[in-house]
């Protein structure tokens, strides 16, 4: 049990009559890259918002980093990073100002903030652009900066909600390199995506259909179970079954 950083038990969320997430249970291991796949409206984002404490579950339990999201949300918030579907940096602040702001509100000391920000600018090669407004940066760099900023307080888990939608293939690749290096440093990564090929980068994935988990295993095992060559095929088979 100790190795599970996320434990979801019969997690359910209703919006009126609509059941967005329907008694979903899963575990995520420490240092794992865990993918949430599914069509738009399948419930991926809702599930993720509940894990971050942005949305209360209608029923069911969820523990993140050893804390119950329901009543220990402050402790949860300190141990997670989050990058929302919509852009999460301030466009009207410069690169450095964004870093300082997020570092500051997570309570980083002046010294460690300086160190982290130096390291971050190194990684992204943004030293020359540190005083540019984020609005003026190319989308790909913005996304990578947003990811690094979400990690500024060294969280043990990072949630990424469709971080690669709308960026070009090269940026997507660079982005996945950053994700993998974060995972190597022991950070657990939870990512939602609708790019099925990205499933192969994940250690384990779950495929959501209409609020339920239709599949939940390693990509390899899932392909085996569904007797499919690629994730695309798996996905087609699952959606055909459901309709």
């Amino acid at each position: 049990m100790d190795d599970f950083v996320i434990i979801a038990n019969e997690l359910t969320r209703k919006f009126g009559d609509f059941v967005a997430v329907d008694s979903v249970s899963f575990n995520v291991e420490r240092g794992e890259i865990f993918g949430f796949l599914g069509a738009n409206g399948a419930g991926k984002t809702t599930a993720m918002r509940m894990m971050c404490g942005l949305l209360m579950p209608t029923s069911g339990e969820i523990h993140v980093a050893g804390y119950n999201v329901k009543n220990e949300s402050d402790a949860v918030k300190k141990s997670i990073g989050y990058m929302s579907q919509r852009f999460s940096l301030y466009n009207d602040l410069s690169v450095q100002e964004n870093i300082d702001f997020y570092g500051g509100i997570y309570g980083l000391s002046r010294n460690s903030l300086k160190q982290r920000s130096q390291q971050l600018l190194d990684e992204l090669d943004l030293h020359q652009d540190r005083n540019r407004l984020v609005a003026d940066l190319p989308l790909g760099i913005k996304q990578r900066l947003a990811f690094s900023t979400a990690l500024i307080h060294d969280p043990s888990i990072v949630f990424l909600d469709e971080p690669t939608s709308g960026v070009d293939p090269l940026t997507r690749r660079q982005f996945w390199e950053m994700i993998q290096s974060a995972a190597e440093r022991g950070i657990t990564v939870l990512i939602t995506t609708h790019y099925l090929d990205e499933a192969e980068y994940c250690q384990r994935i779950s495929i959501m259909v209409d609020g339920r988990l239709a599949a939940y295993d390693t990509p390899e095992n899932i392909r085996g179970t569904f007797n499919a060559e690629t994730m695309d095929e798996v996905f087609l088979k699952i959606t055909r079954n459901s309709s």
Binding site: K77, K78, Y82, Q85, R86, F87, S88, Y90, Y106, G107
Partner: peptide
């Protein structure tokens, strides 16, 4: 409108 409120809400603020 910008969506940054989401980000604020996951921080300990």
């Amino acid at each position: 409108e910008m969506g940054t409120i989401e980000q604020i809400n996951v921080t300990p603020i």
